[in-house]
Design a binder for these strands. Structure first.
Length: 599
RNA sequence: GGUUCGGUAGCUCAGCUGGAUAGAGCAUCAGCCUUCUAAGCUGGGGGUCAUUGGUUCGAAUCCAAUCCGGAUCACCA
């Protein structure tokens, strides 16, 4: 049980014992950490009880304070400041906490619970390379997966690849028309980029063709439908659905190029999956569910044969589930895949990491499954995140106004290199070590930049301003970790201790302010992890790691570790920094960010 | 228009189960390397927490209305 819980529990018992005749709810008790300007570690807010118990805050505080001091062992004393009861925890508690956990690699991990969760993220289209916005999705999904694992869940990381449909046919038709057989090998262009180039080209040509038709007197809507390249793309889709061998071969080839490219990107980003779904394999699954729904009378058919669901009672409109010609729409496939996931893995929760532009879609998906009586509906949770925008507005692959993910990674690594060299910190590294370091710093900065903001908020990224390596960044945290490692190396202490090197630690001296601040932060790590998991929010971890690193830096500045005032202080501080390093490392790992031992 | 998310320092963001004087980073100004890594530390300036009203001992936080901005309401995915 962490301190916050303990204090609340103690306060509750104190009130119950002091006022047995009055019904007190534990929800009424507010326990906070004491603000830095006041003496104390934890604060109980007295106001809620003043009226109820008919005692003035000062008297009430004294009664509770005295009771707690006399009947529990956690606190050494208390003060009352205008309605706040500030309690100071005994140094002994902090000492024992530290001695118990400082070399525990698994500190903070929550015991296994019987809960299997699937996290679907990334879910790329195979017609274009990843851009900056996709990075937010990938980092979020990967990080939330790790956080949920640390919180005791069994997590399956899934990727549903959008590998079929009209958008794929668009890049195919442009390639057929204009590429002269170009391949990634022949051109030296990464496969996903090559295919993406033809997707952009399709839209250029399409726009021109539409313009020509409009000039020839066609209305805009007609022109959009009749543009030859669009008609060819649709013809391609029909052939694809009919299983035309040539079309399928080309589709297979071009998707293969894209996968090669994606694999390179994923490897570099450190993004992995436990299960791949391909829409081309799942897109027919929804039809069966819909048929059953029709038979049960939950869905209805219009004269043209299209199938609909009526959601008016739930505040929505009617929604099409199957076209008149029997082909599936976007949500048809999702219905099937949702059920498939549930049946295959017996998951109790299914998380979709998808941008907030699809809020409506996912809420309807869940609602329809519920109406159809599918048990998979209950566990569906949309981890909705804000889009990454440029100062000029949304990124659009069609128009080529995107910040490319691969380019961004290159730039960040180059920036890390440049700044390391400028700072003159390249000595003592082999070239391989330096290359690794630049990647650790560059990628770390990128991930942290995208994860440090609350997921549901949209972000504006200005490509002209490079991502900082100072202040609230991964670099700052990595630097704190490297500093600690440097001290430990000089002291000849391994990062992970097997035997308890400080077993005979018998502290007598009072803990100093910054020493206590760090220990207290470390003590809160399990709470932070639990909160982050509950909210599916990695930014909580970002904030925590930064605060811990920041506090360490202040501590480091005024307290010498190697040359501490005496042996006891040296031991204490070594324990503090060992645990700090471990916690920083574990926290950053939850974000998918590595920490170097030297930088 | 319906639904929905957001509006906190010049900029980017924390804080939002109501609690003490609203916090970080960047930028800016002033200090700190003979001492464990200055990618760091210390301090200053910078705020009508969109607006108005309500609930409360107490509101950035909860409620209502209004203003501003985004997303969405496709036989696109």
């Amino acid at each position: 049980m962490t301190l916050t819980h303990q204090v609340k529990y103690i306060a509750f018992n104190a009130l119950k014992s002091l006022f047995p005749e009055i019904d007190i709810n534990s929800d009424m008790i507010t326990v906070n950490q004491t603000k830095p300007d006041f003496v104390g570690d934890y604060t109980i807010v007295l106001f809620p009880f003043v009226k109820l118990l008919k005692q003035k805050p000062d008297i009430l505080g004294k009664n509770i304070g005295n009771y707690i001091i006399e009947n529990t062992t956690l606190f050494q004393n208390y003060t009352i400041v205008s309605g706040f009861l500030n309690l100071t925890v005994k140094d002994d508690y902090w000492h024992r906490f530290l001695a118990k956990h400082f070399n525990d690699e698994n500190y903070g991990l929550i015991a296994k619970i019987d809960c299997r969760i699937m996290v679907e993220y990334s879910s790329p289209n195979t017609n274009k390379p990843l851009h900056f916005g996709h990075l937010r999705n990938n980092f979020l999904g990967a990080s939330v997966s790790e956080i949920l694992k640390a919180a005791g869940n069994d997590v399956i990381k899934a990727n549903l690849v959008n590998d079929r449909g009209i958008h794929i046919c668009k890049s195919m038709i442009a390639w057929m028309r204009y590429a002269n057989g170009a391949t990634p090998i022949a051109t030296g262009i990464k496969g996903d980029h090559l295919v993406g180039d033809y997707y952009v080209l399709f839209n250029d040509v399409y726009k021109k063709e539409v313009a020509q038709l409009i000039e020839a007197g066609k209305p805009e809507k007609t022109a959009e439908k009749e543009a030859p390249i669009m008609q060819e793309a649709q013809e391609l889709l029909r052939k694809w659905e009919a299983g035309d061998v040539e079309v399928r071969n080309l589709w297979h080839t071009m998707n293969g190029w894209v996968y090669e490219g994606f694999t390179k990107s994923y490897n570099r980003l450190g993004i992995t999956f436990d299960k791949m779904y391909y829409e081309s394999e799942t897109y027919l699954l929804g039809k069966k569910i819909i048929e059953e729904g029709l038979n049960k009378g939950i869905l209805f058919k219009k004269e043209d044969g299209s199938v609909w669901v009526d959601l008016k009672e739930d505040g929505f409109d009617e929604k099409l589930l199957l076209r008149g010609d029997g082909t599936s729409v976007y949500i048809t496939q999702d219905l099937g895949t949702a059920k498939l996931k549930y049946d295959e893995f017996n998951i109790s929760q299914s998380i979709y990491v998808i941008a907030d532009e699809q809020n409506y879609h996912i809420s309807i998906l869940k609602l329809i499954l519920k109406k159809l009586g599918e048990p998979c509906a209950e566990g569906i949770y949309h981890l909705s995140y804000g889009m990454v925008e440029l100062p000029t507005g949304k990124m659009k692959s069609r128009e080529g106004t995107v910040v490319d993910a691969d380019d961004m990674v290159d730039e960040m690594i180059a920036l890390a290199k440049e700044q390391t060299e400028t700072a003159g910190k390249t000595e003592g590294f082999t070239p391989k070590e330096l290359a690794d370091l630049y990647e650790t710093i560059g990628l770390g900065a990128l991930k942290f930049y995208l994860l440090r903001v609350d997921p549901k908020k949209k972000m504006i990224f200005n490509p002209k301003e490079s991502i900082d390596l100072h202040g609230f960044t991964a670099t700052f945290i990595q630097y704190a970790h490297a500093r600690i490692c440097s001290i430990l190396k000089k002291e000849n202490i391994p990062l992970s201790l097997d035997s308890n090197q400080f077993a005979n630690f018998k502290p007598t001296l009072p803990i100093e302010k910054l020493e206590k601040e760090i220990i207290s932060l470390l003590e809160q790590y399990p709470n932070i992890l639990a909160e982050s998991a509950k909210e599916f929010n990695p930014s909580t971890i970002c904030n925590y790691c930064f605060l811990l690193a920041q506090t360490f830096n202040s501590f480091y500045d005024i307290h010498s570790i190697s040359k501490a005032e005496n042996e006891e202080k040296k031991q204490l501080r070594l324990m503090i920094i060992i645990m700090t390093a471990t916690t920083l490392k574990n926290g950053m790992n939850l974000l998918g960010i590595k920490v170097p031992n030297k930088m």
